[in-house]
């Protein structure tokens, strides 16, 4: 039985005491899952993410991370050192001028000493595919590389869960693909991942997609279920994946295809139809 790592129980939060970002939010995230959270601006995605590692605390209701109440100050240290977070802007979250110093910052603060510290930096760099970049200057890296250094910094703390808050939104397509690949590999190795994103092609590769609207969970399920709901996604001001748009257009024209969410799937469907024609 998988453990529940994060659970929101009727959580409510507002920044100003009047306008609630969410009220009565219920959501549970299991150990080892790869969850994508989608939603337009102002839907409460980032606010939700900051509740996971106790950067924000709910006004009402409770958020449990690793079974501990985030409001319990004695748990804060434990939660933060086990829930790694990567933010949107690559330039805002690197603290040191040399890559290995930056990655060592987190574990060093946890009191990890050499040689373990050096070992952690090394393996974190390997996990994000940046071997050999130890002595590079952080300012001379590309955006995608900076984000990978930020992830390595979080990984070096040996977290149980990794939260990416629109970590790919400032990257070019190649940087985004690299980031996604790293996340997939970490997930396969057992890491629990919560990824907040605008990009449908990223959501298609998660194993669960949660869509937020005005602080409520309005869609929740496997990518194939959620991302195929074109009219609902459009209503929520989200993009409909290309493969899904095409499937729907084809269905309108009488072509018997399933509603696909990835290009590989639709291509397979079409080739099958083509060869049996």
């Amino acid at each position: 039985m998988r453990e529940t790592f994060v659970s929101f129980e009727e959580a409510a939060f507002s920044y100003d005491g009047e306008h609630f970002v969410f009220e009565e939010l219920d959501l549970a995230i299991e150990q080892g899952s790869f969850t994508c959270i989608l939603g337009g601006n102002g839907s409460g995605k980032s606010t939700l993410a900051k509740h996971v590692n106790a950067l924000l605390l709910p006004d009402r209701g409770t958020v449990y991370t690793f079974g501990r109440d985030t409001r319990d100050e004695e748990s804060t240290y434990y939660i933060r050192s086990n829930a790694g977070m990567v933010f949107q802007s690559p330039d805002d979250q690197l603290v040191a001028s040399i890559v290995e110093d930056d990655i060592a910052f987190g574990p060093e603060n946890l009191g990890i000493e050499n040689p373990e510290l050096a070992q952690r930096v090394k393996s974190a760099l390997e996990e994000v595919g940046l071997q050999g970049f130890e002595k590079h200057e952080t300012t001379a890296l590309s955006g995608g590389q900076k984000q990978r250094v930020a992830i390595a910094g979080a990984l070096a703390m040996d977290p149980a869960i990794l939260i990416l808050d629109e970590a790919s939104s400032m990257l070019d397509p190649r940087g985004r693909a690299g980031l996604m690949r790293v996340c997939r590999e970490l997930h396969e190795a057992g890491m629990t991942i919560i990824m907040i994103t605008h990009f449908m092609e990223e959501a298609a590769h998660a194993d669960r997609v949660v869509v937020l609207d005005k602080g409520r969970v309005c869609l929740d399920g496997a990518p194939s279920e959620v991302l195929a709901q074109a009219s609902e996604l459009t209503r929520l001001n989200l993009d409909v994946p290309f493969a899904c748009q095409l499937s729907i257009q084809l269905q309108k024209l009488g072509v018997p295809v399933a509603t696909c969410i990835t290009e590989e799937e639709i291509k397979e469907e079409l080739c099958r139809l083509h060869s049996s024609r």
């Binding site: 095409l246 024209l253 009488g254 072509v255 079409l270 139809l273």
Partner: peptide
């Protein structure tokens, strides 16, 4: 693309 695929598959 949908139109041409449908035509190619003989559904249009």
């Amino acid at each position: 693309l949908a139109q041409d695929i449908a035509a190619e598959l003989g559904y249009l």
